[in-house]
């Protein structure tokens, strides 16, 4: 981007300076627009209910307290249970880890075949698979809940893992395929002549250069599955609900006194894992978003 819009000495006039000030002001205002909701959440979660009733959204807590966090974690009522979001958080962890690992690994092999071992009709098959990235999941909810029941994994974490693997595969396959097409075919040809077969080429030549796309796929799948609500609400039982469902139940509970500080603490707890992933690996996160969204 260097060289665009060269700053000329003569142009460093008051006009240009004012222009710069305007640009930065807008950017800062926009940053505030994005940050304030999070700030509000954080402040609210640190207040007492009394504080909330007398203060306002952006006022600082008169006394900082972690009570709401404690309550959100271990004793808040989500629907009929009053054990906080702890258990649901763990449900989500138990669901995300295997689902991400399995869907990513299968996706890697699929991507390898669809890019480097094309066969007659493989492109067509791939585009049909790709369409799976776009279907509104409402169209599969009913049959899936029937099927999970038949497979005896309805209302369980296993069921959710299964569903997330199945509907994550189109995405992971797409990621890996689009990455592997950038590896020249000639490398595969050379390896074939060198005597390597299907798995050896994958293992020795493709996998060692796949780290970036693994990161992208894992991050994408982790955020998607962690943040999922629809499958969670449709297919989980009361003891297998993921955190998103629990949070929704919490904020939508109409019994008793609304404790907004607890709601906000729970919301931050629910958002924290993906937020951390984003902050640690933002670059890969973005790559997944654009790859997953634009091309598929």
């Amino acid at each position: 981007m260097r060289g665009r819009e060269p700053v000329m000495v003569g142009e460093r006039s008051t006009g240009a300076v004012i222009g710069r000030i305007i640009v930065y002001s807008i950017l800062i205002v926009a940053a505030l627009y994005f940050l304030i909701p999070f700030f509000v959440m954080a402040m609210t979660s640190l207040k007492t209910m009394n504080d909330i009733r007398t203060g306002n959204l952006i006022s600082f807590p008169r006394e900082f307290t972690l009570d709401a966090w404690g309550k959100a974690w271990s004793s808040a009522c989500t629907g009929i249970n009053c054990e906080g979001v702890k258990g649901y958080f763990l449900n989500s962890v138990q669901m995300v880890i295997p689902a991400v690992i399995i869907s990513t690994l299968i996706g890697a092999v699929n991507g390898y075949v669809f890019s480097k071992w094309r066969f007659k009709g493989s492109e067509t098959i791939f585009s049909f698979l790709l369409l799976g990235c776009f279907i509104p999941f409402q169209i599969i909810l009913l049959p899936m809940s029937q099927t999970l029941g038949v497979l005896r994994i309805g209302q369980s974490i296993f069921g959710l893992i299964f569903v997330h693997i199945v509907y994550g595969l189109p995405f992971t396959s797409l990621f890996f395929r689009n990455f592997y097409v950038t590896i020249p075919d000639e490398i595969i040809k050379a390896a074939k002549i060198d005597g390597a077969g299907f798995f050896k080429i994958f293992w020795k030549i493709i996998l060692p250069v796949s780290l970036p796309i693994f990161v992208v796929a894992i991050i994408w799948q982790t955020t998607q599955i962690w943040n999922d609500f629809l499958f969670g609400v449709a297919f989980s039982g009361s003891d297998s609900q993921p955190i998103t469902v629990a949070l929704n139940n919490l904020v939508n509970t109409s019994t008793g006194v609304k404790e907004y500080n607890v709601d906000m603490a729970a919301a931050i707890i629910a958002g924290l894992p993906t937020l951390i992933v984003y902050i640690v690996a933002g670059k890969y996160f973005l790559r997944g978003l654009t790859a997953g969204a634009v091309k598929g």
Binding site: E186, I187, A190, A191, I193, D194, G195, K204, P208
Partner: peptide
């Protein structure tokens, strides 16, 4: 047979020694 490609098609993850040895190892 052995083949040399326009793009050289060297195995990106292997060093030169491994590149030379790969065909013999397999």
């Amino acid at each position: 047979i052995a083949m040399v490609f326009q793009s050289y098609a060297l195995y990106p993850s292997m060093n030169v020694r491994k590149n030379l040895a790969f065909g013999l190892e397999t």
